[in-house]
Write a protein that binds this DNA or RNA. Sequence first.
DNA 1: ACTGAAAATGACGCGCG
DNA 2: CGCGCGTCATTTTCAGT
Lengths: 153, 153
Amino acid sequence: MDQIDRKIVRALQQDGRITVLDLAEKVGLSPTPCARRLDRLRRDEVITGYSAQVDPEKLGFGVTIFVSVELEKQDRNAIDAFERAILRCDEVMECYLMTGSRDILLRVVARDLTAFDAFLENRLMQIPGIRNLRSNFALRAMVKRDVLPMATG
Amino acid sequence: MDQIDRKIVRALQQDGRITVLDLAEKVGLSPTPCARRLDRLRRDEVITGYSAQVDPEKLGFGVTIFVSVELEKQDRNAIDAFERAILRCDEVMECYLMTGSRDILLRVVARDLTAFDAFLENRLMQIPGIRNLRSNFALRAMVKRDVLPMATG
DNA sequence: ACTGAAAATGACGCGCG
DNA sequence: CGCGCGTCATTTTCAGT
């Protein structure tokens, strides 16, 4: 992971469909070694995939909700079980295990509040071991970034 | 936005570098009309871009922190000013305007706690109009998804 | 369907550490 | 000495018309 690798990763975060030729020029390499580095970055799982950025509203997901979940038990088994269950919920875009009261933070998308209510009732609250929930609604996203900061190196 | 468009968007979220040929086959179209739809989806900003998915840890960003910010005033001007300021912070990967006490939720990445402290001191707390802050630390990401749920249609 | 461009692959020599 | 770059060439595949 040298400076050129970081440039490659950065360029690909900014434009995931850039060609190897353009990428090579951008980072100051010729195409073949650039492609070799790209292969390595994927093998090492620095780059784990590629994705289109989509406007959720245009797909009908107008609502974003953050849900704090506190589990009854916070041992490994309880957390693993919750994790397996939450992986099956497509509405959950992000899920973080937090410090402190060792609760869990979810970012959930939904079509509207009715759909979110259905998610809570039929999905989230069906998961055993939940002590309590707290939902906070987002009015809008001010920032949604896909490019990590420059690692100082 | 019909069912085929949704399939296209879904496939591109799953693999942002899929070729038009493979995409066409996947959604049951021939390449040319598939490419036309793709152009339209980009023009309509349903698809806003493409990005590589990167493992933050492998780039040295081992720490994720959620920061709740409460502003002194919650009028349009104060929020706009905060938004402009936060856009300049590369460490802020997401920022949501919330309901309730109309505060703001940030997801911040940092190299370590020292770097996060520097961000708080030199960046975030330099923004005027902040009444208070509350930081919550993530132990790890359980789920990080880039594919929106299927819109029922 | 066609044409130009790009990707994937491999071989080879070179230079810098 | 060896790793990584550059160059070149080839074949296959893709994009755009």
